[in-house]
Design a protein around this nucleic acid. Structure first.
Lengths: 262, 262
DNA sequence: CGCCGCATTGACGTTCGTCAAGTCTAGTGG
DNA sequence: CCACTAGACTTGACGAACGTCAATGCGGCG
């Protein structure tokens, strides 16, 4: 490790800007999407006031999940989708012989639990990578309401379609990219999503271990570590444990999308 | 190639058993899910007669797609989902620098086009691997009707969730399996889906090239070919070009799920 | 019959995994 | 405050799995 950056800051400070005011003082305050700052991330836009009030009803309650604990697990009965309010999750599937694969990392405003719809049981685990809180949205309530609020129906469809498209991208990554390309794509994706939530475009704090990154990217943890080191040597990023600063985003993008011409 | 099996038959004969009678004589006959033999594969079960009649309306028309032609392509405006009546498709995404990745193979009764919902444009190509015919289901019509027919609403959600779960499985495959395991899992999956459609449990005709299999499995075509040869040497399958006979399904399953104990 | 696309096979090279040793950091308790 | 520890991370040496390149075979089709 060569780059000892002292100015890689904890991005978590900025999360306060995203925390709904309703919860600033107490946990027992009425659950309400209508005045949640994450609304634009997890709910449809352009709703009328009455529609907005009705949509508040899809959230039954909230649930806190401690770091390392599971929101739901493989085999568990499916009842609800979950909108992440705070914290960071991973989802992972396991093969029968014990290998497991991280299928995604989810942050505030994103929805988890879609895997459970088809068989009425979950087929993956959702694990909190830091203390987290989610909005519990019973699926039968979502279905009921989305019959009446067209924008919600459309929104549910888009969320599921978005997940399908995301996974298509991961398949491309796993099927055809080399280690450097995978890690570069991973970093760019993470920072882009964080930026959409008001965080820095260039600095981030990884909430997951090298092993979890490796599982997601189809690499071993040593390869992830070596690839980080290589990026550091090339002056593309600065890394100090889980603090990452992207020094040269263009180079990272070039790695993901090598331009043959030019 | 050692195994020259003369008795690997074309499975395509059996497709006639699945072809709706309404189309036996003419192409202009009324489109109707209510008497389509594929209904149980692509439509919800347990509908009342009136609901069934209404569901016929989701199919606007049918469309033939010649082998090698595209049903839809990346960037194209999204309007409809497509239920495959006959034929075989691949879907593939491309990275900006030209690499592409097969994200799935679809057969009769399966639905393609879900990727287009989120951005109102398709993000992948759907290519017919043999002459095919699909039912065109305009998505706004699906949404309209699924507001009124609960079973259809639930069905649409399940179809999308199933696709998410399928892709989770592919991620596990691409992220953590070796070449033999990937090919074994692929063959077992294909033959299982074909069997559900009335085909043999042990014989199949691949509709795709080695290169397309390789793209799907994250391998090069040579590796696919070598792995086939290895399976043949070990007496697990017989292969003659695209005709495959599974001789020892248990061994194949063992390869996918190596049992450490026992 | 000859061509073309697909498939097979071999020789060799690269990338990444494996194994092992060692470092760093945060947390704990004296 | 510092020693101790456990878990995460880094780094090196080596090997296996798969990719690359190239030659050849095979089968279907005009």
């Amino acid at each position: 490790m060569k780059a000892h950056t002292t100015d890689v800051t904890h991005a978590s400070i900025a999360i306060h800007a995203l925390t709904p005011v309703t919860e600033m003082n107490s946990n027992s305050i009425k659950v309400a999407c209508s005045n949640c700052n994450l609304r634009e991330l997890c709910m449809p836009l352009g709703l009328s006031t009455t529609e907005l009030e009705r949509i508040d009803d899809v959230v039954a309650n909230r649930r806190k999940v401690k770091r390392g604990a599971m929101l739901f697990s493989n085999g568990e009965k499916f009842t609800s989708l979950y909108a992440i309010r705070t914290g960071f999750f991973k989802t992972c599937v396991a093969s029968e012989d014990g290998r497991d694969q991280v299928t995604g990392f989810q942050m505030a405003g994103e929805i988890v639990g879609l895997d459970g719809i088809v068989h009425d049981h979950h087929t993956c685990d959702a694990v909190a990578l830091e203390d987290a809180e989610v909005c519990v949205m019973p699926f039968d309530r979502i279905e009921e309401l989305s019959r009446e609020v067209n924008a919600l129906q459309r929104h549910v469809h888009k969320i599921m379609s978005r997940e399908i498209v995301r996974e298509n991208g991961v398949m491309l990554l796993l099927g055809s990219m080399r280690a450097e390309e995978r890690l570069a794509a991973f970093l760019l994706n993470l920072v882009q999503r964080l930026h959409a939530r008001g965080f820095s475009q260039s600095e981030l704090v990884l909430r997951m271990t090298r092993e979890e990154i490796g599982s997601y990217l189809g690499l071993k943890l040593e390869t992830v570590s070596r690839t980080f080191s290589k990026f550091v040597e090339e002056g593309i990023v600065e890394v100090k444990q889980r603090h990452v600063r992207i020094v040269n985003a263009d180079k990272l993008k070039d790695i993901v999308n090598p331009k043959v011409c030019n």
